[in-house]
Computed example of a mutant assay.
Amino acid sequence: MGGESTTRTAPRSGGTGTGPVGSRTGQRLSGVAVALGLVLFLAGFGWGVVVYRPYTVPTSSMTPTINAGNRVLAERVDGGEIRRGDVVVFKDTSWVTNALVVKRVVAVGGDTVSCCTDGRLTVNGKKIEEPYLPAGSVAESTNFPEVTVPKGRLFLLGDEREGSLDSTAHLTDAAQGTVSQNAVTARVDAVVWPMDGMLERPTGFETLGALSTPGPLRTILVLIVVGGVLVLGGGAYGPIAKRTGGRSRTEPAGAR
């Protein structure tokens, strides 16, 4: 009998075996990750487009909270949802014709507001802590007598009190500087350029009632980020598996 020879063949790829681009299970999981990632990414992006609008603040009247030229994201809201301390975007033609304005709401319908008592804004007889004002400034840089805000209207100030054309600049108007809540188109949630992040909560107004509920911006960002990571991770599986699998299957040939 002649010498016995043995021919070895590489095992075929099965349901869980390794092929040229990784296991079939791995490929399926990467496909699911990409599909889920796309759903989350598009859902978050679409939600953001529907709920938020971008706006560039042209003046420094809201410094240091928002500087001139900053890009903000403002949640589309109904004027009836506005609370004390909110930074809002609105249009009032008696203030500026055909332009949107950004100011902070310090009093709502039925409130009395004045400045200043011991250097602080007073709303309904309570002195308000305003940590968002420029460092070293005091509220009494702009004094004004007590105003009773009519129902359905808002009293608004800039955080930079000395240079802001706000309600105090219109006190002699018939509405005593107040603006209809229906003029509000959005509430600012965050400064996105530069990336200063979410606005701080105006906690000084908490003693007067509930503050606004934060918008869904954080949830939207989580959906977009997680979706993007899943798409990139799932899409990278094939090339990575191909490279690592190809190296692991390269074995030296031998004979008995």
Rank of each mutant, 00 (worst) to 15 (best):
S248W: 06
A255P: 04
L199S: 11
N182A: 15
L208V: 02
T213Y: 07
S212P: 02
I220E: 05
K242W: 11
V188G: 00
G228S: 10
V222D: 10
V188N: 08
G204C: 13
E251K: 10
T185S: 08
V179M: 00
V229A: 13
A183C: 08
K242C: 03
G235M: 12
V222F: 08
V179L: 00
E200S: 15
A186I: 07
R243P: 04
G235F: 14
E251Y: 10
A255G: 06
T172V: 02
A190Q: 08
V192E: 10
L223K: 05
W193D: 12
V188Q: 07
P194R: 09
R247D: 04
R256N: 06
P214Q: 09
I220Q: 11
G246E: 03
G254D: 13
G177F: 01
V229M: 13
D173S: 06
T178M: 00
G245Q: 08
R187S: 01
Q181T: 07
V225F: 14
A175D: 13
T244Q: 04
T172P: 00
V226C: 09
V188Y: 03
N182Q: 14
P194Y: 11
T207C: 10
T219Q: 02
S180P: 03
A255N: 03
A169E: 02
V192G: 02
D189N: 10
R247N: 01
G238I: 05
V192M: 09
L232W: 02
Q181L: 08
V188C: 10
T250Y: 08
T185A: 01
V226I: 08
L171M: 00
